[in-house]
Structure formats: C-alpha cells, structure tokens
Amino acid sequence: MIRFERETFVINGVKTVVFTAGHGEPVVFFHGASTLEGFEFCQSWSERHRVIVPHHPGFGESGDDPNLTEMHDYVMHYLELFDTLRLDRFTLVGLSLGGYLAAKFASEHGHRVKKLALIAPSGMIDPQHPMIDMLAVPGEQVPGLLVSNFEVMKKFLPEKPDLDFMAERYREATTVARLLWEHPGDPKFMRYLHRIRVPTMIIWGDEDKVIPVGQAETWRKFIPNADIKIFKGAGHLVHLEKPEAVEAMSNFII
C-alpha cells in the first residue's frame, strides 16, 4: 500500500494541507463536514491513480479563514489550489458536504472534471426528503447518526471524553456554521446543477439517517445520466460500511 505524503500550501493566505499518494490519472477526494473518519478508504485507488485529498480550510490540518463565508469561496479556493498543483483535469469524488462542493465545482467548471462521484451528497433542497439539520444535533449524537452499524464508527472516537477532540469538532462545526447557519440550503445551487454533463456516479446507503436515500432520485432529475447505486443496510458513511461501495467507485473512476 502506498503511503500518503503530506504537503502544505498557502492558498490566498490560507494554510492548506494536501495528502497525496500514487501516480497516474488524478483523483481528488473532498471530505465532508468533519475530518473525523479520515480518508483511508481511498488509499487502494493510489495503486492506479494519483490520489489527492486536501483538507478544506477550517477543517482538519488546514488553517482557518473566517472570510470564507459561502460555498463559492471554497470553489474559488480549489480553483487556486488545483492551479498550484498543476491539476488540469481530474476525477472528483465528494462525500456529503464535500459532495455538495464537488457538484458545485463541476457545475461551474465542468471542463476540469473528468468524472464525478458523489457519496450521499448534501446541498439538495428536497422538502419530501429533508436532510437532518446537523448544526442542531448535539455533538454526542452525531456519530450514531453517521452509520447504520455503530461498530464502524468506534475506532474514530475517543474512549473517554476528550476536550481536544471536542474542540476540534467544535472548530469544524464553526466552519460549517459560517457557511450554512443562516441559509442551510441554496436554491441557486440546484438552478445550475443541470450543467453537469460529465459521467456521474451517486452512491447512497438506504439507511442513511442524515440525508434520506430518497434524495438520490431527486439528484437524478438534475443529472439524468447519473449512475445511482444504493447499498442496502448502510448509513450515511456508506463507503465505510460497504466495501462494495468503494469497489463500485473504483470501477467507475478507472
């Protein structure tokens, strides 16, 4: 297994940590609203690809910038980072909030995206299948919502109450609040989704307690050619609960 190398860039003043492994056609993974569960799942892709995992500003090992107050600021951040990394065209994979960001990036800069894979993406305003407002969920209840089988979560959680762990989650929630507190949904995002014309795969767990699997069909309305795969018995972090989900993505991104 190829190890990830950690590099630090300063993008428009923001410390940005990027993990990279492997060679070949580039694949970028956007993490979700927390760095809690890591990104080991995509390590196997490094055997055939150059896998690039940045930490978003305000998350994990990247720095904070309170001036990033809307999703579009993150699109701009990544345009600059990808230019710095000399990444012209790449496959983009995004999880949850990272899926929202990946879809937004692809709708605005489709020519740079070769393929798009979305894991239970957020961002959709779907009154029939509303997403849980994660900002309103008490911290201690969050891990239980993320998976169907809690055993999967355990290795990411401290055994005893841990102030530093709590503070790091609070910091990431603060970043999310800057983006979404007043307007958790942005109708403009959906307005331009139809511009996504690249091959797209959407995967979802049918027991997702954060974003109901019913939203998958709503995505299809905006991206009619999307290949939607539903995995039985999996929750929001379907890629951690079902190896088949990672395998499906692996076959897709080849």
């Binding site: 008490p138 530093d164 503070a167 609070y170 929630a173 603060t174 999310v176 609040a177 800057r178």
Partner: peptide, 17 residues
C-alpha cells in the same frame, strides 16, 4: 445543555475548553 451554551462559532476553541 453544553450544546445550547456554545453554538458553533460562539466561542473560540480556547474559550470552549
């Protein structure tokens, strides 16, 4: 509750601790 006392971003992480 701790959640209500400190909504996200209301405190710096140092103050939170």
């Amino acid at each position: 509750s701790p959640q209500f006392l400190a909504p996200p971003g209301y405190l710096s992480t140092d103050q939170l601790k």
